[in-house]
Design a protein around this nucleic acid. Structure first.
Lengths: 194, 194
DNA sequence: ATTATCATGTAAAAGGTTACATGATTTG
DNA sequence: CAAATCATGTAACCTTTTACATGATAAT
């Protein structure tokens, strides 16, 4: 999958591994991320398979830049992947839900603290999606007005991230309320009265 | 992470690898899944590390059952993991969004077909979460009424899956409408008039 | 002074998938 | 008669993470 993120990005313009990393960090990070080390090894494999080619731009005082460019074979591989439908939904992997599922015996306050923290983190993510992410799409479209439909797709993925964060916040508030409603008789203990 | 799903499940009752797989398929599958082969190797590693122990129940006509049981060390590892907070949000990995992000130049009808298919799949998942998943939690609680808080947590994870599926359906309908609204002048081409 | 940015990679380990190997019994 | 269920595992492979290795320049 990282393979197609790299092909798709290099289909817009040639870049180094380092630039691909920062591009991903500012755009795909809400639905796909990768470490630099993985990007470098995947680029090497894609070049070996003929989907990319690279050239060296010498530099002084810092490592030479290796700029990757997509080949025709790369464009073909990308397009045929984009055309084939996904016939199942992506299985989720949510560590938070694993914890929660087994947290029936966990201390109420320990659990609530964890849920409040997650809520804070999703609020922060939501702000970032509504501000930075939105602005950077507008900026990119402004630079290349021909990419109108592309920008529409970027906005759609941003919007999915936004709805997701909103959903998680709603859900967290729902279960925080549910857990707070447990054992109303125990509440005075919080005041240190016993 | 699979490690903690196995410890958490075996903390309810001892089971074989095969039974753990079917338990996961009927309960954690909306937020964590694994193949049998991975379950078997992970169980072996957990036993090597002293968090589980196994015993053989001989059977005729089919392979002996290897039943795993959690140890005190296993319970301790589970509890200390449950207590420690998650300090960041889970990075998502959504193949569908990767496709969409790079689909700006993709044929409108090819794209719409893919989005309609995904919508169908999420509708099916939503039905399953509202029917099977809900019923199986009620059933488990009925068998062991002492697990009231546990059942509350199971319901919370089910509910998250439900909200997620609803959100994805909303989002898919939103972008389907957006793409259908593209280029209204091209619509007559569909009738084969040109 | 420390941190961020630019810039490259390799190696080992962990996590996860796919394929292989076996085989009786039950259900549709 | 085919598929699902029960029941175990191993081996090869792919993906991803973590750690190692280097080092100048610019910003805070």
């Amino acid at each position: 999958m990282l393979k197609y993120v790299l092909l798709g990005t290099l289909n817009y313009s040639s870049m180094t591994g380092y630039e691909l990393k920062s591009f991903m960090d500012s755009s795909t990070t809400y639905f796909w991320h990768a470490r630099l080390s993985q990007i470098y090894t995947t680029l090497k494999n894609l070049e070996r398979d003929g989907l990319l080619k690279s050239s060296i731009e010498p530099q002084e005082e810092r490592p030479d830049r290796r700029v990757y460019e997509i080949t025709q074979a790369g464009r073909d591989a990308l397009n045929s992947w984009l055309m084939e439908p996904l016939t199942s939904i992506e299985p989720r992997k949510e560590t938070l839900l694993v914890k929660l599922f087994f947290a029936g015996k966990l201390d109420k306050d320990v659990l609530l603290a964890q849920l409040h923290l997650q809520r804070q983190l999703y609020l922060k993510e939501l702000r970032s999606l509504r501000e930075q992410a939105k602005a950077s799409i507008q900026q990119a479209l402004h630079r290349s007005p021909a990419l109108e439909y592309d920008a529409q797709m970027w906005e759609a993925t941003r919007r999915c991230g936004e709805l997701y964060a909103e959903m998680m916040i709603t859900w967290l508030e729902e279960i925080i309320a549910m857990i707070e409603a447990r054992n109303p008789d125990d509440a005075p203990a919080k005041r240190g009265a016993r």
